[in-house]
Simulated scan of single mutants.
Amino acid sequence: MNDTQTAKSRGQQPPPVRILIAEDSESNQMLLSLYLTDSGYALDFAANGREAVSLFKAGSYSLVLMDIFMPILDGLDATREIRDFERDRGLSPVPIAAVSANAFTEDRERSLQAGCTNFLAKPIRKIPLLKFIADTLGD
């Protein structure tokens, strides 16, 4: 029984689904925050790949939206570090969606090779984003 099922069986509110959004653009962070304001998801934002890895290691996330091109540590290297962390601890892999304006086949392939489970092309629109999240999380 997972946390949501346990909470429901006790008549409690289940904990919110947590999403880590690794995005260095403040305007994109604000846009994604607006898109997801009334969604019921708990959002954490990382402004670079190193911060995303640190937040992931310290938290518990159901989904990561990982911008590919970020300062300090890019999204693909951050994804590799997250996958190493999960593997070293015997954790089930959390879905990681690569997010990029570069939507060429080779970008998608590089993302999958790094350990991403899916790919979202920018610009991101609200309805497709909500559908993507619901499909990914099985809502």
Rank of each mutant, 00 (worst) to 15 (best):
L65A: 07
A78I: 08
L91C: 06
A97I: 06
L91A: 09
S111N: 03
E51A: 14
R83T: 11
D77F: 05
L112S: 11
Q113L: 13
D107A: 08
P71D: 12
R110D: 06
V94C: 10
L73N: 05
A101Y: 02
I82M: 11
S92V: 13
K122V: 08
S100R: 00
A52G: 10
F119C: 03
D44Y: 05
A97W: 11
A58T: 11
S92D: 13
I124R: 00
E81H: 07
R110L: 09
L55S: 12
D74R: 06
P71G: 14
A101L: 01
L63P: 14
A58N: 13
E86A: 04
S62H: 14
R108I: 14
I124V: 15
E86Y: 07
S111G: 12
N48Y: 07
L129H: 09
S100Y: 01
T79I: 07
I127M: 14
R80Y: 02
D74G: 05
R87H: 13
R125C: 10
E109M: 11
D84I: 06
A114F: 08
M66Y: 07
E109V: 15
F104E: 12
N118G: 15
D67F: 01
A78K: 02
R110S: 08
I68K: 00
S111Q: 02
F69L: 11
I72L: 10
D84H: 12
P93K: 06
A103S: 10
A121C: 05
D67S: 04
A97K: 09
I68A: 00
P128Q: 08
S111W: 03
D84W: 01
L91W: 05
I72A: 12
G49P: 01
P128W: 09
I96C: 04
R83K: 07
A97V: 04
E81D: 13
E81P: 00
L65N: 07
L129F: 06
R125K: 14
A58M: 12
A103I: 08
L63E: 09
S100A: 00
A47M: 12
I82T: 07
M70K: 02
L43I: 06
I127S: 14
R83D: 11
G90R: 01
F85M: 03
L91N: 11
I124H: 02
V99L: 02
E106I: 10
L129N: 09
F104V: 09
K126R: 15
K126N: 12
S62F: 03
L112C: 06
V53N: 04
Q113E: 15
T105S: 13
A52M: 05
A52D: 03
R125W: 10
R110P: 04
A98C: 07
Y61C: 12
I82S: 02
D84N: 13
V99T: 05
N48V: 09
L65K: 04
A42Q: 15
D67K: 02
N48G: 09
P93S: 12
G59T: 09
G90I: 00
P123R: 00
R50G: 08
I127D: 15
M70N: 05
D74F: 05
A46T: 08
R83W: 08
A114L: 05
I72F: 06
A58R: 13
L120K: 00
V53K: 01
V94M: 08
R89F: 01
S100Q: 00
A121P: 07
D44E: 14
V94A: 04
L129Y: 06
D77K: 13
I124E: 02
T117F: 05
P123G: 04
V53E: 04
